[in-house]
Structures are given as structure tokens and as C-alpha cells.
């Protein structure tokens, strides 16, 4: 059986908000290491990979591996009934038809109990190769969100060019063109506000802004975001949170 108690409902609520528009149904794979999810969007252009480690829960117990098939829109509706500060407990039997969710207020004067039907999902797991990326860019998550939103007003695509001079996001469309260049900065007081660029070679890749804007729905989960890129491979966008991560992969646009 699974029993996982999470001190802050907000973590699960924000995570669902960050993935539910990209993915409709997914298996939550539960093991003694924690709860993970890997799912592609319908067009097979983007992939979400979530890990909530066991040590992020207190307590966490999972006797045997379980795949909980969940409609993310339904889970999101149920989670709407939880307050951000509530304590959430997830429970499932060994061969479950339902997921049980309990929301307790901080002072335990209100306990809400929900049961959600599970579904059978035949899910393809992609083998993601370990990659040493040529460019690793860490920047404030809010900055990345703003750049994606601003450039999506100009074009459907953005070209990200990482070089020793900085990282440049550039778009060109019918109304004109625009670009934002970030230089490396160091803010020792607030590391989350720094931009760092680690580069082994220059990288230039073009991506659909529709997906990137979608990824930035994870902004409330983390102060910083890391973009990892190599020429001719998918982009990895990672939001690290306490007790896990939310990663997105995005296939590039390639020249015809």
C-alpha cells in the first residue's frame, strides 16, 4: 500500500497547475524512492518528468511499486478543495481502484476526505539518455517567464543562442522582431536572482514558444530555472523544488 503525507498542499496544487495543460492522463509511479511521473503531450513534442522524493513526505510508506493512473483534470478539481496550508495524505491499496486524499487544516479542526477513481493507462516510458549538455543556464524563474511571454507576442518561435557573450532569446514575426540578452550576473545575497552560464561550446536552437510559455506555469514552484541545451537535441528545462524536481523536455525546430 501507499501512504504519503505532505506538509503543504500547495506543493501538489502548484505541480498540478504546472502540468495539467500539457498532459491529460498519466501514471503516478510510486516506489520506495518516492512518486514520479513521466508523460508526453499529445503531439509528442514535449515531455514532463516529475519526481517527489520519499524524503519530501513525512511519513512515506510504499510497500510495493504502484502505478496510479490519474486524470490530471480530475485530480486538479479534487485538489481545489484543499487549502494551500493543508496537510495532504495520499493513500492507495496494493491493487487500487481509488486514490484516497485527506486534507487536514494546520490546527486539525477540519478534515476533508475525498476518493478519486483511478484509470488504467498504458503508458510509454521514453528512454532519456544521460546527456552532458554544452550549455547550462540558470536564471530567475520569473525572468524566464517574462521573456517567453514577451516574445510570444512577436512570434511563435524563439531562437536561444548561448555563447560566451551571454544568452540571447530572439524572435522574428509579422509585426517585427525582438530579442533579450542576459549576461552572467552574480548576486551573493540572493543566489536565486543570479544568472549563470556554463558553456563548453556555443549552442543555437529554435523552439516553439507555445510550449515554453506552458512550462513557465511551474514558476511558482521555484525561484530559479535551469535550461540545459546541446545542439540538435531537446532542451531540458528544470525547476528544482524542495524534495524533488519538475523537468520538461522540448524537441527543437529543425531546418527543413
Amino acid at each position: 500500500m501507499l501512504e504519503a503525507r505532505l506538509a503543504q498542499a500547495a506543493v501538489l496544487k502548484k505541480t498540478l497547475d504546472a502540468i495539467k495543460e500539457l498532459v491529460t492522463d498519466a501514471n503516478f509511479d510510486c516506489s520506495d524512492g518516492g512518486i514520479s511521473l513521466q508523460a508526453m503531450d499529445n503531439s509528442h513534442v514535449a515531455l514532463v518528468s516529475l519526481l517527489l522524493r520519499a524524503d519530501g513526505f513525512e511519513p512515506y510508506r510504499c510497500d510495493r511499486n504502484l502505478a496510479l493512473g490519474i486524470n490530471l483534470n480530475s485530480l486538479s478539481k479534487v485538489l481545489r478543495s484543499a487549502q494551500n496550508e493543508d496537510i495532504i495524505t495520499l493513500k492507495a491499496a496494493d491493487d487500487p481502484d481509488n486514490l484516497s486524499l485527506t486534507f487536514e487544516s494546520q490546527n486539525q479542526d477540519r478534515i476533508s476526505e475525498y476518493e478519486m477513481k483511478l484509470m488504467d493507462i498504458d503508458q510509454e516510458h521514453l528512454g532519456i539518455p544521460e546527456t552532458a549538455y554544452a550549455a547550462v543556464i540558470t536564471m530567475p524563474a520569473a525572468e524566464f517567464q517574462r521573456i517567453c511571454r514577451d516574445l510570444s507576442g512577436i512570434s511563435e518561435s524563439v531562437t536561444i543562442d548561448a555563447s560566451k557573450d551571454g544568452v540571447k532569446f530572439a524572435s522574428a514575426g509579422d509585426i517585427g522582431n525582438g530579442s533579450v540578452t542576459l549576461k552572467q550576473t552574480h548576486n551573493p545575497e540572493e543566489p536565486a536572482l543570479s544568472t549563470s552560464i556554463e558553456l563548453s561550446e556555443s549552442v543555437t536552437l529554435t523552439f516553439s514558444l507555445k510550449y515554453l510559455v506552458n512550462f513557465t506555469k511551474a514558476t511558482p514552484l521555484a525561484g530559479a530555472v535551469t535550461l540545459q541545451m546541446s545542439n540538435d537535441v531537446p532542451l531540458l528545462v528544470e525547476y528544482k523544488m524542495e524534495g524533488g524536481y519538475l523537468r520538461y523536455y522540448l524537441a527543437p525546430k529543425i531546418q527543413d
Binding site: M40, S43, H44, V45, A46, L47, E124, H125, L126, G127, I128, P129, S157, T159, A172, T206, S208, V233, P234, Y249, A251, P252, K253, I254, Q255, D256
Partner: peptide, 14 residues
Amino acid sequence: PGKQATLGSFFAMP
């Protein structure tokens, strides 16, 4: 600009 690739061309399908 360019054609949208899919992840299947980069990652191993099961």
C-alpha cells in the same frame, strides 16, 4: 522557421 521535431527522434521509444 524550421520544422517541429518530435521527441521520438531523440529518445528511445519503448
